[in-house]
Design a protein around this nucleic acid. Sequence first.
DNA 1: CTATATGCAAAATTTTTGCATCGTT
DNA 2: AACGATGCAAAAATTTTGCATATAG
Lengths: 138, 138
Amino acid sequence: MQSHSAQTPERIEARLREHGHAWTAPRRAITHFLCSSTAHPTAADVLAAVGGGHASSRATVYNTLTLLEDLGLIRTVLMTPGEVRYDANVARHHHLVCTVCGSVEDVPAEDVSVSLRGQAAMAEVRFEGLCVRCANVP
Amino acid sequence: MQSHSAQTPERIEARLREHGHAWTAPRRAITHFLCSSTAHPTAADVLAAVGGGHASSRATVYNTLTLLEDLGLIRTVLMTPGEVRYDANVARHHHLVCTVCGSVEDVPAEDVSVSLRGQAAMAEVRFEGLCVRCANVP
DNA sequence: CTATATGCAAAATTTTTGCATCGTT
DNA sequence: AACGATGCAAAAATTTTGCATATAG
C-alpha cells in the first residue's frame, strides 16, 4: 500500500500525449520506475533501474526527466548537497531526512503547519530526524 | 547595516587555530568574502571573488569550503538544483527565494513557526515569495 | 510518411585527487 | 625544521549536446 499520493503512469502518459509527445518504451520504463519509488531517486538511480543502455540511454534518462519536470509531472527535490533527486509526488508535501540512515521520507502537508510572521506562505520544509523505520529500532 | 548574524572572520580564524589549522592568505580571503556576503555564493562564486589562480586556486577553494563546513563554521544551502551554496550564517534560520528576482534571503528563525504533527522538530524552511525589495516595487 | 525520440559518443561542467613546492607555526 | 596548505594539472563524476538511425502517430 502506497500512502503517498504519487502520480500514476497512466496520468503521465495521458499528459504527454495531450502535449503531443510520444509514449515510448524508455519513457514508460522511466515513468513506471519513478511512480513506484518513494526513494527520491537521482538521475543515476533511474538510469541504473531502467538498465543503462538497454532500456534507456543516459541521454534519454536526462531528456525524459527534464521533459516530465517541465510539464510539472514530476519535481526535483533538493535534499543532499550536489544531488538532484526526483519525486513523482507533485502534491504539496514536505520531506524528512533521517539522521540515522539518510533516507528521505515524504511528510504530508496536512501533518505540518508553517507560518512566516503569522502569515500563511508558500513553504517547503526539510525536517531532520528519525524516519519511521529507524524510530522503531531502539 | 547587516541584519544577518553571520560568522565573523575573527571568530573563524580563532576556531581554525584552536583546531590546529593554519591561518593562510587564501583562507583569509575566502573567509572574508563569505562573511561579507549575504548572497549565498557557490564555490565558483567564491573562486571568482577571491581571484581564481591569484589568491586561491580552485582546489584550495574547495578544500577550504569543506574544512569550514566540517568545523561547522559555515554551512551549505540547497536552494537551486545542482548548485551547492554556502552561508556564513550558521545560526538557525530559514530562506526565502524571491519569485521575481530569484534572490535568496535569510529569514530569521524567530519569524517562523513550524511544527510536525504538533511536535517541535528540527526544520529548515524554504519559502517562496517576494523579497523585501521586490515587495516594495508595486 | 513525417516528425519526434533514441542511442552513442564527444564536449562542457563541477568536484576530487596526487604530488612537488611553499609558508605557518 | 616540520608539518600542513597551496597550486597545478590530471582524473572522476555529472550533465549537456550533436547527429545518424529508429520509431511513434
